[in-house]
Amino acid sequence: MFLKVALLVLRKDFAIEVRSREILFTTLFFALSCVLVFSFAFVKEGEPLEDAASGILWIAIAFAGTLALGRTFERERYGETLRALLLAPAPRPAIYVGKLIGIVLLLVVAEALLVPLVALLFQATLFARPLLLSGLLLAGTIGFCAVGTLFAAMLVRARTRDVMLPILLYPITVPVIIAGVRGTSALLQATPDEAAATMWIALLVCFDVVFVTLALWTFEPLMTE
């Protein structure tokens, strides 16, 4: 029942996205704009600053992720469908899981575009260790979205949700950003530092486990008014 409801919510979000494509396109374009804006700050005389590529990649992910989180839950707020979901005869955390998987998949698609773009613009050897990089991106994205999905869901009823989401989300997810940026930079060195990248992935996986558990645990009391 739990998984079935999570998958139903995911499939429903997918069906909406297939029809409108709004969140995908806006998120992608926003991520692109982020990369370009930061490029002007971190490229000097045609040469990017050290580690600029990994930093820009993760900032773009975090910013685009916040935007996508806000938009998906705006959809559930309009028509108060989130309340309808909470009324479903299923464990309520299943709704959280469904939304989480959806937002992670969306960001993975965005990353599939961002990584080649950053590699191209910054002459970064992002594809030297594809498996480790994928691991970093996936674990980092899950960690960021685990916290973000819960916060965005609980802020649906708050009038100040647009500004509150980043205010609450960024300080909590700083470990994810540090791990992501440092891990990616380790892979971008002339000889990729696999040990460092693996260590950061391990930290991210711990973060994911702790915060997904915590979110599943707090979702029900947070969603009851």
């Binding site: 708050a158 915060f211 947070l222």
Partner: peptide, 15 residues
């Protein structure tokens, strides 16, 4: 946080 902000804050503190 508006109505129910005590719970939102509580979640932030726990996290």
């Amino acid at each position: 946080g508006g109505p129910g902000s005590d719970k939102l804050g509580a979640a932030m503190a726990v996290f």
